[in-house]
């Protein structure tokens, strides 16, 4: 009760959410619903398209958390390229168009039990830990392109360059893995 009084004194209302919170909640519900459809639908191409909705919803959540640069990077890389790659993968492995009855494996009840147990435990822990914690979004934008670029190229240059080498190595590896053997054709 005393914590409730303290919280009320600091100006954060329990039952009066702000507009940002309401928007976050609605977008979060849509995102979670799209994610659930992604992992449960029987149509493989629809799973990739619902993944677009889920990733776009997460981009909107980044915008609501004032991390603009991350949001646009999310839209560019995830929605723009990763989902397209996944769709190409589905097409190249001759994924059936329409409902495929064997999209889920036999250990589905065990997976559901594990996921629900993990979700219950983690939600309980997280809500209990951050019950009285608020993000102050009014003190300026945290993740504009200027701020992100400055921190990225002032403090994180070495990991950035190492990551570019890793990305190059990964792409070369992907090309080497996926091309056909040349000596077979001779």
């Amino acid at each position: 009760m005393s914590t409730a009084v303290q919280l009320a004194a600091t100006g954060h209302g329990f039952l009066s959410p702000t507009g940002v919170e309401i928007a976050f909640l609605l977008v979060g519900i849509a995102t979670f619903g799209a994610a659930v459809i992604t992992v449960t639908t029987k149509q493989l191409v629809h799973a990739a398209l619902w993944l677009v909705v889920a990733l776009g919803g997460i981009a909107v959540e980044y915008l609501l958390l004032t991390a603009e640069f991350i949001a646009w990077v999310q839209v560019l890389i995830y929605v723009g390229s990763v989902v397209v790659l996944l769709l190409f993968g589905l097409m190249l492995t001759k994924a059936p168009i329409g409902r495929s009855p064997d999209a889920d494996s036999g250990n589905r009840p065990a997976a559901l039990a594990v996921a629900v147990a993990a979700a219950a435990a983690l939600v309980w822990v997280v809500v209990d830990a951050f019950r009285a914690t608020w993000i102050d979004l009014d003190k300026g934008v945290q993740g504009s392109t200027a701020v992100s670029g400055e921190s990225l190229f002032r403090y994180w240059v070495l990991p950035f360059e190492a990551l570019s080498v890793l990305l190059l190595a990964a792409l070369v590896g992907a090309i080497v893995l996926s091309r056909k053997k040349v000596e077979e054709k001779r």
């Binding site: 954060h12 959410p17 702000t18 940002v20 919170e21 976050f24 909640l25 979060g28 995102t31 979670f32 994610a35 889920a54 997460i58 959540e61 609501l64 958390l65 993990a118 979700a119 983690l122 939600v123 997280v126 809500v127 951050f130 019950r131 914690t133 608020w134 993000i135 979004l137």
Partner: peptide, 14 residues
């Protein structure tokens, strides 16, 4: 914004 909103959403997505 309450910190529990993004944390709970992240838990559910995970």
């Amino acid at each position: 914004m309450h910190l529990a909103y993004p944390a709970v959403l992240a838990v559910l997505l995970f």
